[in-house]
């Protein structure tokens, strides 16, 4: 089962998507239309680029910094949370799903992906 299908089947997950680091492709599963998934990919890719750089800078100031290399990020809103790992994003309605569950599955499936394409 693909990671997108697996995530999209979890309770509370509105949509799971994947974007290329180059910014030229995206795919998704769940309740979004093509344009929304494209916009979500643009936003998530932009933040991933920023966080990647910030993690590199942080690593200069702490030995064996466990925040480096960056593996992802999360933004929480009042109703929805966005969790991103590697080049995969997941929109979660937290009243119906569990961020911890999504995080664990993304961690199992995506943590080992090398970041040399970022």
């Amino acid at each position: 089962m693909s990671i997108l299908s697996e995530l999209a089947d979890l309770p509370g997950v509105i949509c799971a998507g994947e974007y290329s680091y180059r910014g030229d492709r995206f795919s998704y599963k769940g309740h979004m239309n093509d344009e929304q998934a494209r916009q979500a990919s643009i936003m998530c890719r932009a933040t991933t680029m920023s966080v990647h750089m910030q993690s590199g800078i942080l690593s200069n100031f702490c030995d064996q910094c466990g925040l480096f290399p960056n593996k992802g990020w999360i933004v929480k809103g009042p109703q929805f949370t966005v969790c991103v790992m590697a080049n995969v994003f997941c929109f979660i309605n937290e009243s119906e799903g569990s961020l911890n569950q999504v995080f664990e599955i993304m961690r199992e499936r995506l943590f080992e992906i090398p970041d040399d394409l970022v």
Partner: peptide, 10 residues
């Protein structure tokens, strides 16, 4: 409004 940001490292 955004109610939190997390950075996930290795």
């Amino acid at each position: 409004p955004v109610q939190g940001f997390s950075m996930i490292g290795l």
